[in-house]
Design a protein around this nucleic acid. Structure first.
Length: 289
DNA sequence: ACCCAGGTGGCTT
DNA sequence: AAGCCACATGGG
């Protein structure tokens, strides 16, 4: 950890749990420090790494976060963890609009939607399709080792940056297959080429959605994840296998009625749909895994 | 051996 | 528009 040069402390943070934030399925380049009881994690985004340690704050409901970082500055990490957003207010508003979500809000009380990099989210969620979270992490780690750069050592292991677009655009599909990326290998190379050509989706959220859906290997679910996590459209409501089941069990939807679920989310959760979805996803997956 | 995982593309009704 | 099925891979 010799490369974690600077230390920042954020004191008295409310509605914050580093474990919930990282383990709720929005990002994949993290690992818990063994024995830390989900209070300490090593995280990488792009080529920046940090060791994040959470501890009790002065009062009930407040936490302190100590970051030892390799790159970036206080502004970058404060933005990354979304300290400016008041999740207490959001939870209150959601509970008013839809009382049944209360248990999910309590269970995931410390969830926040990270400010992630579009490119990294794009590739990560292409990999996520029909895949489980532990293996998604392994796949992403494999492409980082093969196509990223070394950013130093942590915990006795060499760590790597997320690959740049040009590095994945220049990759051979067969080489990605050898990394066990499976049929998503072609999607990844073509996505890198398209992203270099077209850049970050512009316009309103509908225009951005149309653009995302024009990528090979991106359908409605992955597009909504990228819209939410990579473009910060907080109303985007991704419906995966877990969200389908929670919508069936909590609200009585048929598993195939995706349209109905989308309408319900837009009506009840409005511009906070993506945040509501994240509480629901984390709650239901935790209960049933 | 079977079913599932933060699904999608492509083909057939 | 809706219903199939193949797709790589590894964990339960």
């Amino acid at each position: 950890m010799s490369n974690l040069m600077q230390t920042f402390e954020f004191k008295g943070v409310r509605d914050f749990s580093i474990g919930q934030i990282l383990e709720c399925g929005q990002c994949f380049r993290w690992e818990e420090i063994p024995g830390s009881q989900r209070n300490s994690y090593f995280v990488i985004t792009g080529r920046a790494a940090c060791l994040a340690e959470e501890s009790a704050g002065d009062e009930e409901g407040k936490r302190n976060l100590k970051l030892q970082i390799s790159d970036g500055d206080m502004e970058f990490w404060s933005d990354y963890f979304d300290f400016k957003t008041d999740y207490g207010l959001i939870k209150k508003a959601l509970a008013m609009r839809e009382p049944k979500i209360g248990a999910a809000l309590e269970h995931g009380f410390g969830i926040r939607i990270l400010h992630q990099d579009f490119w990294e989210v794009l590739i990560s969620f292409i990999i996520s399709q029909n895949n489980n979270i532990p293996r998604i992490k392994k796949c992403i780690n494999a492409i980082c080792e093969a196509y990223g750069e070394s950013i130093g050592e942590f915990g006795g292991i060499e760590r790597y940056s997320f690959p740049l677009p040009e590095n994945l655009a220049g990759a051979f599909v067969d080489d990605l297959m050898k990394l066990r990326l499976g049929y998503r290998s072609e999607y990844i190379v073509r996505a890198a080429e398209k992203f270099i050509k077209d850049g970050i989706p512009q316009g309103d959220k509908d225009a951005q959605m149309t653009e995302l859906l024009s990528y090979l290997g991106i359908g409605p679910k992955v597009a909504n994840c990228i819209s939410l996590f990579g473009l910060r459209n907080l109303d985007a409501f991704p419906i995966d296998t877990w969200v389908k089941k929670v919508m069936r069990d909590m609200y009585g939807f048929d598993l195939k009625d995706i349209k109905g679920m989308q309408r319900f989310a837009a009506d009840r959760f409005g511009d906070m749909g993506g945040i509501a979805q994240q509480y629901l996803f984390y709650y239901y997956r935790d209960k049933n895994l």
